[in-house]
């Protein structure tokens, strides 16, 4: 059984935020909500700067599903974690339970208080009818149903962000790691890593 996973290669991510913009544009995500974000440490320090693109990691044993009081989460057979916005009451417990800060809450309720939760769907829509207007309005594009990979990964210029079946993603990771080699003090970074296939 395949399990869909993301992998972000911190040797390749160059903090361009292309994935963030692609995701927001594709799913028409409102201002204030970011399904994906890029985190950078040691910014500007040569050889030490590292960036990572983060979104819902579609955990196999998802804590958000465990904590949700309305049981609005469900995990598809391919491992993609989705939720039903019609059930969600916006309590925010999933945000506390999530190790990755994936759940997002816009201000849309009465008097602008916190609305229902929004998160990365791995571009797989939601429980509404597949490829329907309602599904797009609630959850954004359903690229998986169209046979495509998530928008963020498809737009990543250095191919730092990889998405797909965990076994395939693992092969890419192993290949890159082996090519980079261990115990080298100056590993390739960003475009250098991309151009060398590392």
């Amino acid at each position: 059984m395949s399990r869909m996973k993301f992998y972000c290669d911190d040797y390749r991510c160059i903090d361009c935020n292309g994935c963030v913009v692609a995701c927001k544009e594709a799913h028409e995500i409102p201002v204030g909500v970011n399904r994906r974000r890029v985190i950078t440490i040691n910014e500007g320090i040569e050889g030490k700067q590292k960036s990572l693109s983060v979104a819902c990691m579609h955990c196999s044993d998802a804590p958000c599903q465990k904590v949700c009081p309305t049981d609005c989460f469900y995990i598809r057979t391919d491992g993609i974690v989705l939720h039903d916005k019609d059930k969600c009451i916006g309590c925010g417990y999933c945000l506390y339970a999530c190790p990755f800060g994936a759940p997002q809450f816009g201000h849309e309720g009465i008097f602008g208080v916190k609305g229902v939760m929004d998160k990365c769907t791995f571009c797989a829509g939601g429980p509404d009818e597949t490829l329907s207007e309602s599904e797009f309005e609630h959850y954004g594009q359903n690229r998986i149903a169209e046979g495509k990979i998530p928008m963020c990964a498809s737009m990543c210029s250095t191919k730092a962000l990889v998405a797909g079946d965990a076994a395939e993603v693992d092969k890419i990771y192993e290949y890159r790691t082996a090519k980079r080699g261990a115990n080298t003090s100056l590993k390739p970074y960003g475009w250098e890593a991309y151009n060398n296939g590392k």
């Binding site: 009081p69 309305t70 049981d71 009451i89 916006g90 309720g109 009465i110 916190k114 229902v116």
Partner: peptide, 20 residues
């Protein structure tokens, strides 16, 4: 309403109550 929304199964009214 928040604690026991497993019983109500969520939706608009429990969400409104949570906002209240």
């Amino acid at each position: 309403n928040i604690t026991w929304s497993l019983r109500s199964e969520g939706g608009d009214i429990p969400r409104l109550l949570r906002e209240f």
